[in-house]
Design a protein around this nucleic acid. Structure first.
Lengths: 230, 230
DNA sequence: TGGACATTCAAACAGCTGTTTAATACAGTT
DNA sequence: AACTGTATTAAACAGCTGTTTGAATGTCCA
């Protein structure tokens, strides 16, 4: 290989520097708002380097997404590992906790910023993320919830409960809205939040299980037919 | 006014046509991926029309966002109206139901597509959306939840519960992921989903209320000042 | 050494971007 | 009739976009 071995701009080679800076920039500003020249300037590389190493801007982006997927898979694995041997409700709490502890603080930030953007303007890469990360996580959670509710994993009530849990986790990740008491700053705060989500969710699941339909006595009458515009 | 009265391309004038097509396109593809020329072609208008009527692309986008805000405020109002006179738990269910019924089906789709994109790459307009739509909704929900839990509205447990409820509603809106049993197609399906979210949430709230201390030793504490960002 | 190879570089390319311009058309008023 | 202000138009503008080029590097192995 013809690397310049040492000296000069950095100790990692150009390809790696491009990858690092591209991840940071794509996450921070989105695919369309980052120019190849931005990335190359940040990575101390020539404009042509992106095309040389990644066959274009899109190729570089795909490489970044693939990098993100790997990291997310590690998180999935860790979250499952932490609950091994526990009862289902403990696994749920454990999953939520590990998930938040890993994702909220530290510097994994760029990954989820990137994912949020990818969801907003999906590229072919999104399909890969869904299959390799999101679906496995959902399957794992589904097994847990089904176990708690003592229902089949393909029961609609189970699948809805899973989404209810998942959506809370995602809300905790979204740093998009400045609002929300869902943005803890300390590790203890993250633990607190994880406890809340797990507890809230277990309560919700319990309610669904005990009364497959309807709410306590406080049925909201029959639904007021909504008027209003088409 | 110097409109061509009738005939020709359409019966609404250029300004309105631009607004309509811009809303559709911005929602479908995002701000950066829509060109002024795209919009003008779709609206049968000249390229310069955008600058003439809206002082530029950004001005047109702002106008679209303002349009979206108005519609969303109507939804907020309707959701609150529907629960008037009910007990708090009924108001919660009612809020969720009206919210979903209005947002999920039919052709309000562009509004929330637009919001998702705005969240992903915020413009100065986002601040307006937060203040005029999101915060009022959150305040209303907060009053309801606080009433159910019999706690102050500024109690951290209340605010977290509100986010838990809200995040489920947002998940139901997000049509971004093909996945999820959260994507009903019929009005009855929407009702079902609304029931689920309301029920799940009431269960979660109940659990939080009955066990003030979380599942672990961590204390929800008395009104820990909410961690504001520096 | 000298050729083979991978990598970097400055420069140029073609294309699209939002915006401006200056000319024109047309309704209503005087 | 001429004047006025609004609205539309085709054409051009300046700037940035991702990508390509062809020459110049440096490194390794025969």
């Amino acid at each position: 290989m013809g690397a310049k071995s040492a000296a000069l701009s950095s100790d990692q080679d150009t390809r790696e520097r491009l990858l690092t800076e591209a991840a940071r920039l794509f996450a921070a500003r989105g695919f369309a708002r980052v120019t190849v020249r931005d990335i190359c300037r940040a990575a101390n590389a020539n404009v042509a380097a992106v095309n040389y190493h990644f066959q274009g801007k899109r190729g570089l982006y795909d490489a970044v997404v693939r990098m993100a997927i790997e990291r997310m898979q590690q998180t999935t694995e860790a979250a499952q590992e932490a609950g091994r041997g526990m009862p289902a409700s403990g696994q749920l709490a454990s999953y939520v906790s590990v998930f938040l502890q890993r994702v909220i603080p530290h510097r994994d930030g760029w990954i989820h910023q990137l994912m949020v953007r990818e969801l907003a303007e999906p590229t072919p890469a999104l399909q890969l993320v869904v299959r390799e990360v999101l679906e496995p996580r959902a399957r794992y959670l589904t097994r847990i919830v089904a176990s708690i509710m003592q229902l089949r994993t393909d029961d609609l009530r189970v699948q809805r409960a899973v989404v209810s849990v998942n959506s809370q986790c995602f809300a905790a990740i979204d740093s998009r809205l400045p609002v929300s008491a869902f943005s803890p700053t300390t590790p203890a705060g993250v633990d607190d939040l994880a406890d809340h989500i797990a507890s809230f969710s277990l309560g919700g699941i319990q309610r669904l299980t005990s009364s497959p339909r309807a709410t306590r006595g406080t049925r909201p009458a029959r639904r007021a037919r909504l008027p209003r515009r088409p």
